[in-house]
């Protein structure tokens, strides 16, 4: 009897039927007004696609195109092949700027990830005071980078600034936060960490609270030490989130513009000049449109590579569920 029963039941539970009927959950259109039904969706996505086409997708190709020309926005364009790229790769200023960009990224990303992870672990319990602290930490995220830059410039003022006053209390001589080539980059990183930390913490706390409690209960029953629990449960469960934050952090550092433009203007002595700021200078100050476009292509390759890494790894693993 059991055999017969099994046969009947496998016959019934044919999964493809189940799947199909669910997949095709969409309402199918009535027969009337078919033409209208067919064009309507296209009309609805058209405005958005138009904007994307003209202001995101076309510009990418246009930029690549322009990068093969010598142009100053006004005179005729002159095709020069890959000369812009040769100029760029042989220019030591470009390498300096690229180096600065990576230096910024290498300070910014690990520091913000580690700090935010620690703070998130500290704040993970959903209590009123913790939510309050999170709210306060999040404030810089919704404030304009212009205001933030001004606040920090004022606090980092060499003579009247709050920072140097605090240092003087400990008998430390004043630091020229934004005027000293050795310190300026560090100061910029500090501001950017301060601004984005609240966002990182928010996301990690959300991820931490999403880890099912029974995992910890099981670990406790298995007499796991807190350290072991952290490395065997918490960290692996967080890894997709951390990975996302690392990648967006890297891409974010590549894009840094506002704080550089407002606080140091790339100085002193180009020590804080980053890729996007240099691109802006080349394009809008020196009118080397072709050359700037070539830089834009490099930036695009960097961002694209990071995105590619992100999606490749994401498809491979980093998901526990």
């Amino acid at each position: 009897m059991e055999i017969a029963e099994k046969a009947v039941f496998t016959g019934m539970e044919r999964p493809r039927f189940k799947l199909k009927s669910r997949m095709k959950a969409k309402a199918d259109p009535g027969t009337g007004a078919k033409v209208w039904q067919k064009t309507l969706p296209y009309c609805m996505v058209l405005p958005a696609m138009l904007i994307f086409g003209v202001f995101v997708i076309y510009p990418v190709f246009y930029m690549v195109y322009v990068s093969f020309f010598d142009w100053n926005m006004i005179a005729d364009m002159e095709f020069i092949g890959i000369e812009n790229y040769i100029d760029m790769f042989t220019d030591k200023d470009f390498w300096l700027v690229l180096g600065n960009t990576f230096q910024f990224m290498l300070m910014m990303v690990p520091a913000s990830i580690i700090l935010s992870l620690l703070i998130a672990l500290y704040l993970k319990k959903n209590t009123r005071i913790n939510r309050w602290i999170q709210n306060i930490m999040f404030m810089p995220n919704i404030v304009s980078l212009v205001s933030i830059s001004f606040i920090w410039m004022w606090m980092m003022d060499e003579n009247r600034g709050l920072f140097n006053y605090v240092l003087s209390l400990f008998n430390i001589s004043p630091v020229n936060w934004l005027g000293d080539p050795d310190v300026a980059m560090f100061s910029l990183v500090l501001v950017n960490i301060w601004k984005s930390l609240g966002y990182y913490v928010l996301i990690i706390v959300a991820a931490l609270q999403g880890i099912p409690g029974y995992l910890y209960e099981a670990a406790a029953l298995d007499k796991s030490k807190p350290i072991t629990t952290f490395f065997k449960i918490t960290l692996p469960m967080l890894s997709p989130t951390l990975f996302f934050l690392v990648l967006t952090g890297i891409i974010g550092s590549f894009k840094t513009f506002e704080s550089v433009s407002l606080m140091t203007a790339g100085g002193p002595a180009d020590s804080t000049n980053t890729l996007v700021y240099e691109l802006y200078q080349q394009g809008f100050v020196y009118y080397n449109t072709g050359y700037a476009s070539a830089m834009g292509v490099v930036l695009m390759v960097l961002v694209g590579a990071m995105t590619l890494v992100y999606f490749t790894v994401l498809q491979k693993k980093v998901h526990y569920q």
């Binding site: 995101v56 076309y58 510009p59 990418v60 476009s293 834009g296 695009m300 961002v303």
Partner: peptide, 13 residues
């Protein structure tokens, strides 16, 4: 494709 990537061509357009 962030704004910081395409602002130059966007300006030109």
């Amino acid at each position: 494709i962030p704004a910081q990537l395409v602002f130059l061509p966007v300006f030109l357009i």
